[in-house]
Design a protein around this nucleic acid. Structure first.
Lengths: 305, 305
DNA sequence: AGCAACGATAGTGATTAACTATACAACGCT
DNA sequence: AGCGTTGTATAGTTAATCACTATCGTTGCT
C-alpha cells in the first residue's frame, strides 16, 4: 500500500470510472486497474463492484476511501510543513552568548535580528564558554558567541570582530595622567577579576602573566559580573580590565571612572560565532553575523577574513 | 514520498542512529540512509543533523516526524478497517422482498439471520419485483427475494424453494366438499386479485387463463395486500388464490376460511434469491438462503439444484 | 447478431528500491 | 601523532515494481 495507490483509490471512488479516474491521475487505465486490484488483494477486501454499466463502491470500500482521504490529507500536511520550514529565517534560533559579551551586545543585536528576520525569534542563553559548548554540541543551542581560541570537534567557528582591552580605574587614579598603560604595570595595582570559568579572566591574566604570581595585588570576584566590578572600581576598590565594548561607553557622564587604552601592542580578544558543522540554517547565522557587525560596539574591529 | 519512507523517518527519529533504525525496519543501513536523503531532497529541508557522535533531529524535522507518525497511524487504520470489514457477515445487508413473501417469511427469517450472523443487521425493503430489481442494480439493495422467472443483465439468481398455490374460500363455500380444485374452475367464481405490478397476480392469471377474459368474475384490488384479500374472502366477497406459505397456516383457529389445494399438476411459484454478479459478500447470501430454508413455511419444497 | 464501452490481462521497458562492498569522516586511544 | 573504531555516505548490482501499449473478454445495447 503506497500513497499513490491511495490516490488512485480516492480518484476511482470519485469518478466511479476506471478510465476517467486514470486520466485524472495522469496514468493509463490498466495502471489504475492493476493498482486497485493490488490494493484489494493486499487488504483482502473487495473495494469496488465492477460491471459494464458502472463501478459501485462497497460499504467497506467507502469506509476505506474515507480513511484514505484522511491519510492523503495528513500526508499533504508534511509538504506544507516542509515548505513552511524551508526558510532558514523562520523558526526560533537558540543563541548562546558568553557573560562578558551579552550585556553589551544583546541590546543592539536583538532589534537588528528582529528587523532582518521577523519570524526568527531568538532564544538566548548567557553562560560560560564551556557550558555554551556543551549545549551547542547537545543541540540545546544552535549558535554561540564566544571568544577565541575555541576548538571543538564537530564545531566550526567564524571570527567576527576583534575587541581591544581597556584599563578601568577610579577617577583621580595616578595613571589617569598617562595616555596609555603598559600591560606589565597591571601587576602593581589591586586588580579586580572575574571568577574562574570566565574566559575573559584568563585572557586578562595572559595579558599580564605577573598578575598570576603577584598575589595580593589581585582580587578574584567569584560569581560576579563586569558590571559589578565596574561599580567596585568606581568606589575605589581597585582597577580592572574591560573589553572596549564594555569600557568605552562608560566615561560619558560617569565622573567616577576613567578609561585608558593599553600601550601597543594593544591586547585584544577575538570574538567568533560557533555552530555545529552539521547545522543547516546557515542563512540564520549570516543574519546573526550581520547584526553583530551592525551593532555600535565601540572600539571593535571587524574581522573580514 | 512513500509510506515506507515515512516509516524509516520515524524509526530514525526514535533511534537517532541509522544502523539501529535500519535494523528495526529490517533493511540495511544504506537503504535507510538513501531513503532519508531522498526525503530531504524531496522536501528540500534538512531533517537530521548527522555527525559521528550522534544524529540530531532539526526543529523542522521534529515537526515533520510528528506529522509522519500521524500519517502512519491513519494508514494503519485502513488495514484495521479492512480486517474488520473482511467478514462478509459483518455490516448491514440490504434485503429486498416482494410483497407476497415478506409478511410470511420475514418473521421467521429475521431472528434466524440474527442468530447466524449477529453483526449483520438486515435493512429490509418490501416492494414490487421491478422496483426491487432497480434498487438491486443501483446498489440500494444487496439481495432480493423474488419469484421466478427473473432475468436481468448483471444479476444472478438462485432458486430457493417452490411454493404451491392454494385456493382460499369462505367457510361453507360449495367447493369445500372437494379435496382439490381444478385450476380451470377459478374462472367460475368471483376471484379477488392483487393489483397490477404484483407478480403473484400475473402468476395466478397464468394458472387460469380464462380468468383474464372471463371478466366480471374477477375483481382486482389495487393497492391491496394478500392479508386484505384474506379478510375479504372471510367476509364472503369471493375466493382467491394464495401461496401455501400464506394459506396453509390460516385454517387453524379461523372458522371463516377454508383452504383447498389445486388438482395435480399443482400450480406453484419458484422463489429465488437474486444479487449482482459482482456482489462480493457471497457468505452473506448463503446465510440468507439457509435462514429461508430453515423457516417453517408450510407446503414449500426446497430447490436443491 | 454485431457493435461499442469498459475493465482485465499480457508482455515489455524503465524506474526504483533493495542489497553488498567499500569509501570517507570523525573521534578516541595509546 | 598515527591507528583503530564507529558511523554514515557512496558505488555498483540485482530484483522488484510500476507504468506503458496492445489486446482480450464481457456486457449491454441497437
Amino acid at each position: 500500500m503506497t500513497l499513490t495507490d491511495l490516490r488512485y483509490l480516492v480518484a476511482l471512488a470519485r469518478e466511479r470510472h476506471f478510465g476517467h479516474a486514470a486520466e485524472r491521475c495522469n496514468v493509463s487505465q490498466p495502471t489504475l486497474s492493476v493498482a486497485i486490484k493490488k490494493l484489494e488483494d493486499e487488504l483482502a477486501v473487495t473495494l469496488f463492484e465492477r460491471s459494464a454499466a458502472d463501478v459501485k463502491i462497497t460499504d467497506i470500500g467507502a469506509r476505506i476511501v474515507a480513511q484514505a482521504e484522511k491519510v492523503l490529507l495528513e500526508a499533504g500536511q508534511i509538504k506544507e510543513l516542509a515548505t513552511a520550514g524551508r526558510d532558514p529565517l523562520s523558526g526560533p534560533l537558540k543563541l548562546g552568548v558568553i557573560y562578558t559579551i551579552g550585556p553589551y551586545l544583546l541590546p543592539h543585536l536583538i532589534p537588528r535580528v528582529h528587523a532582518a528576520a521577523p519570524s526568527m525569534p531568538l532564544l538566548i542563553q548567557e553562560n560560560y564558554t564551556v557550558r555554551l559548548a556543551e549545549s551547542l554540541k547537545r543541540g540545546d543551542l544552535d549558535v554561540i558567541v564566544v571568544a577565541l581560541p575555541f576548538e571543538e570537534p564537530g564545531i566550526v567557528t567564524q571570527a567576527v570582530y576583534d575587541e581591544p582591552f581597556r584599563v578601568l580605574m577610579p577617577a583621580g587614579h595616578a595613571w589617569e595622567q598617562e595616555a596609555s598603560i603598559s600591560a606589565k604595570r597591571l601587576a602593581e595595582a589591586p586588580l579586580l577579576l572575574l571568577g574562574a570559568g570566565n574566559c575573559f579572566r584568563d585572557q586578562v591574566l595572559e595579558v599580564c602573566p605577573l598578575c598570576r604570581s603577584g598575589e595580593g595585588l589581585q582580587r578574584t570576584l567569584e560569581g560576579s559580573s563586569l558590571e559589578t566590578i565596574r561599580h567596585m572600581v568606581a568606589t575605589g576598590a581597585g582597577i580592572t580590565v574591560l573589553p572596549s565594548s564594555a569600557a568605552d561607553p562608560l566615561p560619558d557622564g560617569n565622573p567616577l571612572l576613567t578609561v585608558r587604552p593599553f600601550e601597543a601592542p594593544e591586547p585584544f580578544r577575538r570574538i567568533a560565532l560557533a555552530w555545529r558543522v552539521t547545522y543547516p540554517r546557515s542563512g540564520a547565522i549570516d543574519v546573526i553575523r550581520s547584526a553583530i557587525l551592525g551593532s555600535p560596539l565601540p572600539g571593535v574591529r571587524p574581522v573580514t577574513r
